[in-house]
Amino acid sequence: MKSLEVRLREIRDSGRKALVPYFMAGLSEDWTDHVAGAIHAGADAVEIGIPFSDPMMDGVVIQEAALRALGSGVTFDSACDDLARLATEVPLIAMTYFNIFHHYGIERSAGRLHSSGLSGVIVPDLSLEESPEWVASCDANDVATIFLVAPSSTPERLKLIAQSTQGFAYASARMAVTGSSSGDGEGARIVKAIREVSTVPTYIGIGITTPEQARAASGVSDGVIVGSALVQVLLDGGSASDVERFIGDFRRAID
């Protein structure tokens, strides 16, 4: 079992709901201060977006953040360099599209993640079927590959994914890209189904935009992922103390 999963299981077994905010690497010069602020305010793990030119699974907010980061020259290497200086015990999880790693080199990417202190990775366009070579390289570097379960996943696929994901299972609450919060979401149903076939911690993401939604989602799962709502604060010029306030509100809502 990967270090990340050991840690996330400990959090779950202690009765604490996990709060996982998302940041776009290099969105501003002081972006690692924002990450530090979130950790200070009670984040249990942090998702780090590496910007890609064609973010197929992302809505307008994260698209805009990726475009800005790319505009200021952010690369996989520069993001890793910044993170290596962060020095935190809180797990860091990379999130980007497969072409970034494919181009950098599969083994080299997994090694770079590990040496930069990243213990998990989410690659939304890397399907379970296409993932064996990637997962093998991550396995050799103690990097957990986290897979998503979607509302459209068949029971057979849900079981396969729940048994293959490492660290946690990402329950995508909606048939939508990131940032969409329409409708009630199907997070509760998906988490219940995952728990029937696996003991892996299960977090709900996609459409968690308010502390109230986070409270409801964490009530039926082991944690929540907050992306677009937080990135919007930063696109609007938010500071590290704004991040602390934002994360603090979510923390209180789910505790």
Binding site: D125, L126, S127, E129, L148, V149, S153
Partner: peptide, 20 residues
């Protein structure tokens, strides 16, 4: 069977679209 022509092709899409 993996939808490949030699090394090219495949199915690199989010899980939400795999069933479709």
């Amino acid at each position: 069977e993996r939808g490949r022509f030699g090394e090219f092709g495949g199915q690199f899409v989010p899980e939400a679209l795999i069933p479709a």
